[in-house]
């Protein structure tokens, strides 16, 4: 479609072409699956932010116990007659909060260790070993132990999930930063007497920023799964709803075996969020890679 005009413009002024970010975004917009996924994530974010406007906070007891989905209760009610639609809406808020919070913290730690390891060769061995060791341990039982000790709260969940999620980020970031550190523009900066801090901030970090962007999405979706897992085992924040807590209630009360909706809707919410996040990450990777993107401009 725009192939010809694009070729002409790039041929005439090769220097003033679109920035890489603009090209990535243009390629991304052509991927329908990626766009749907972004839309879905945006929708979930709106639901999380606007929860009080969408549904009343589910509390107390309702009259219809374990009623199926209907016009009054879109997602049915649980064993205490509380509306499950409201629970899922408010659960979106907790899940998003824990997911984004834990992801942010894990990214900061992981990028620091990953870039630090690649840049400062002396600490690389120790940091690499630490990452390997932590990656090979079964993390969920460890999270359970720590969350049980620290007492369930949103803050605990964020910290616990972040503390055991950063090694994955560090591994990916380090492998991306390693070839950058050996490039000649980094050497040139050193020769010109640039301090380490400057080289790291100006050269290394921007070069690994696309990986960091993907990591944010992937780590957040994994954090949501971890939160749901911990809540499902009874370690969720007792003062706020989360998707895992709804499932925990369904499992604990035994309503699971008679009322499918108590498990179906929170499960669906988790699935939509994680699949959307995965698709966004995949689509972004495709759009960024000149060999796989389909915009004709290389």
């Amino acid at each position: 479609m725009s192939g010809l005009s694009e070729e002409l413009t790039t041929a005439v002024e090769p220097v003033a072409g679109p920035t890489p970010a603009a090209r990535t975004w243009r390629a991304f917009r052509r991927n329908p699956l990626g766009l749907v996924a972004v839309g879905l994530l945006a929708l979930l974010l709106v639901v999380a932010l606007a929860a009080p406007l969408i549904a009343d906070y589910p509390r107390g007891y309702g009259e219809d116990v374990l009623a199926g989905p209907s016009a009054a209760h879109w997602f049915g009610t649980d064993h205490l007659g509380r509306d499950i639609f409201a629970q899922v809406v408010w659960g979106t808020r907790t899940s998003m909060m824990v997911g984004l919070g834990a992801s942010a913290l894990a990214i900061v730690l992981g990028v620091a260790v990953g870039v630090g390891g690649a840049y400062f060769k002396r600490v690389d061995g120790v940091l690499g070993l630490l990452v390997d060791v932590m990656l090979s341990l079964p993390v969920l039982p460890l999270m359970i132990l720590v969350a049980a000790l620290a007492g369930p709260s949103v803050t605990t969940l964020v910290v616990v999930i972040a503390v055991f999620s950063w090694p994955e980020v560090a591994r990916v970031v380090r492998s991306q930063a390693l070839p950058i550190v050996g490039l000649s523009y980094v050497d040139a900066a050193h020769v010109m007497g640039a301090p380490n801090r400057w080289v790291l901030l100006r050269h290394v970090l921007p070069a690994v920023s696309p990986v960091i962007a993907v990591s944010v999405v992937v780590t957040a979706s994994r954090a949501v799964l971890s939160e749901a897992g911990l809540a499902f085992l009874g370690l969720g924040d007792p003062s706020s709803w989360s998707w895992g807590t709804i499932l925990y209630n369904a499992q604990r009360s035994g309503s699971l075996s008679s009322s499918w909706w108590t498990a179906f809707f929170p499960s669906l919410a988790i699935l939509l969020l994680v699949v959307a996040a995965t698709l966004v990450a995949l689509a972004y990777n495709d759009a960024r890679n000149p060999r796989t993107r389909q915009d004709g401009a290389r």
């Binding site: 799964l225 897992g229 699971l256 994680v274 995965t278 698709l279």
Partner: peptide, 28 residues
């Protein structure tokens, strides 16, 4: 991709429902 994105209890509950409770092929 979808399989990797699934929440373990979701899969477990779905299987338990279909093959344990509904079809009754396997113990729950």
């Amino acid at each position: 991709v979808v399989g990797q994105s699934l929440f373990v209890p979701t899969v477990g509950i779905a299987l338990l429902y279909t093959f344990g409770l509904w079809l009754g092929w396997f113990p729950i």
